[in-house]
Amino acid sequence: MADEILQIRDLQIEFVSEGEVTKAVNGVDLTIAEGKTLGLVGETGAGKTTTALSVLNLVPKPQGKILSGEVILDGVNVLEQSEHEMEKIRGNTVSMIFQDPMSALNPVMSVGEQIAEVVKIHEKVDEKAAMERAREMLETVGIPGERAVEYPHQFSGGMKQRVLIAIALACSPKVLLADEPTTALDVTIQAQVLELMKELKRKFNMAMLMITHDFGIVAEVCDEVSVMYAGKIVEHGTLEDVFDHKCHPYTEGLFNSLPDIDNRKSELKPIKGQMPDPTNLPTGCPFHPRCDYCTERCSQEEPPKVQINDTHYVRCWLYENTKESQLKG
C-alpha cells in the first residue's frame, strides 16, 4: 500500500440552526493514498461537500460543529490547527475546486492576478515572478499565457473552470478536492476538463477526492469509490468492487436509476421514496425506509461495517454472515 496522504477517521459533523440539529456527517472514514483518486458519490444532502470542507477546516462556524473524528492531512490533524496554520496549508498542501466556476472567481481581478495571489501567499516571490508563474499555469491548463490580463467575464464556463484548476494547482498541492468540477459544463467541455484533470494528476502526482453524483465520471477518473448516504459511507471499494460486485441496495438502486445507453428499451428502476430529512434521520440503517430488502432488524439496529474482501466493505445487514472478518462499527 502506498503512503496515505489523507486519512479521515470517524468524522461526525452536525449543524445547529433555529434549534434544529442537522446531522450532516455521521462517522465517515476515508483514506486516499498518494497520487490516487477517490470518488465520493451520493445525492444532494448526503454530506459529500461537508466532508470535503472539513479537510480545509472550513466547516462553517459557529453553526457547524465537529463532534468527533480526525482529519490527518500529510501527517497533520487539520482539525487541531490554528487559523494561522491553516492559511499555510490551504492552497499549498490542499486545494479545492468548486462546482460553479461562474461564481468562484473574483470579477474585478484579472485571472492572472488571481493565480499570482496564491503563489505570493505561499512562496517568497516578487510580483513579477508570481505573474510569470500565473502565465505558466494558464498554459498548463490550455489557455494562452497572454490572456492572464483578462477578466473572468471574458472567459467561457469551461475556460473559467480551467482558470480555477490553475489557481488550485499553482502551488502543486498534494491533495486536490474537486467538488462536482464539471457539473455546470456541457458534455464536450466536460470531456476536455476531465481529460485535463487526469493529465495534471499524473504530472503533479496529486491525490484527489472527486465529489460527484455521476458514476460515468467515477469510471473515468477514479481508482476507488465511496458511496455516501445520509452522512455515512455505505459502500466502499475499488472500481471493480463497486461497479461489478456492488453489494449495498442503495448502490444497486443508483445504478438501476441510470438509463442504459446501449439498451434504450431497458426499464428504469428508481429507488422508491425520498432522501431522509437530515434533522430527523430514521433509526437503524438510514436507508431502510427505501430499501426493498428491509428486515425488522434494519429499522432498529445500525448495520456494522462488513468487509467483503481486502478492498471492499459495505454497511448492510444482508452481508452480516458473508465473512467472519467482521469489523466493529
Binding site: V187, T188, I189, A191, G216, I217, A219, E220, I261
Partner: peptide, 23 residues
C-alpha cells in the same frame, strides 16, 4: 463527438473518445 463524450457508468468496454477542440 457528442456521443463519445458521454461518461459511461461502466469500467469495461469503454469506447474511444473523440475530443473536439475549442468551444
Amino acid at each position: 463527438a457528442l456521443l463519445s463524450a458521454i461518461p459511461v457508468p461502466r469500467i469495461h468496454n469503454r469506447g474511444e473518445r473523440i475530443l473536439i477542440k475549442g468551444e
